[in-house]
């Protein structure tokens, strides 16, 4: 009779062990996920394939720009968050198309697709070594997603075993400007 209990006990322990391992060991996506490269505003981060430096964050309610000879104005149900940054390929020509605004609550906002044709938009043109691009990432986020966010920059939206720059952005950013003209932004 006692051997039956011993067997049941062993089974229970094995089940608990397996459940614990499933719960608390990192998953496949985490093991093969992005390789983080942490930094702050104004710091140049050198990853595999590119270097990035974020300089400034601006908030705006409306953005104006000229695309394909037409004046375009964009407004939002939330707010536009602009990150002025510098990108450079290293050591070979490459594209960096995975810019994400990671809010303090954990939501991931991909750079807004509503600005096609806007001047100096980062992440669209290919980067070249020794020819840095200075430009802007534009995100559209709800107001509560502004404070304490992180800027993620990588070659793709879901980098696998590749660099992802994680730039901590300021905790408070003040009130958004009513209107910003992208053509008049100071990029330097």
């Amino acid at each position: 009779m006692s051997s039956v209990f011993a067997k049941l006990g062993a089974l229970l322990i094995a089940a608990l062990l397996l459940a614990g391992m499933q719960r608390f060991t990192p998953g496949y996506t985490e093991i093969t996920g992005p390789i983080p490269l942490k930094g702050d505003l104004g710091e140049t981060l050198a990853g595999r394939g590119f270097t990035v430096r974020a300089d400034k964050v601006l908030l705006a309610e409306t953005l104006r720009f000229k695309a394909y000879g037409r004046e375009v104005e964009r407004n939002s149900g939330g707010v536009f968050a602009l990150v002025i940054a510098r990108l450079e390929a290293q050591p070979t020509s490459t594209t960096v198309s995975g810019a994400i605004w990671l809010s303090a609550q954990g939501a991931r906002f991909v750079a807004s697709p509503r600005f096609q044709g806007a001047p100096r938009l980062l992440g669209t043109d290919r980067l070249e070594p020794s020819l840095p691009q200075r430009g802007v990432f534009i995100f559209e986020v709800p107001r509560e997603a502004v404070a304490g966010a992180t800027l993620l920059v990588a070659a793709s939206r879901w980098p696998r075993l590749d660099t992802q720059a994680e730039i901590a952005l300021p905790v408070t950013l003040g009130t958004p400007a009513p209107l910003i003209d992208l053509g008049e932004l100071a990029y330097e």
Binding site: P91, T92, P129
Partner: peptide, 14 residues
Amino acid sequence: LVLEAPDGRRWSPQ
């Protein structure tokens, strides 16, 4: 087909 600098930097065609 790329142009390569002596230090290994490479430029792709445009």
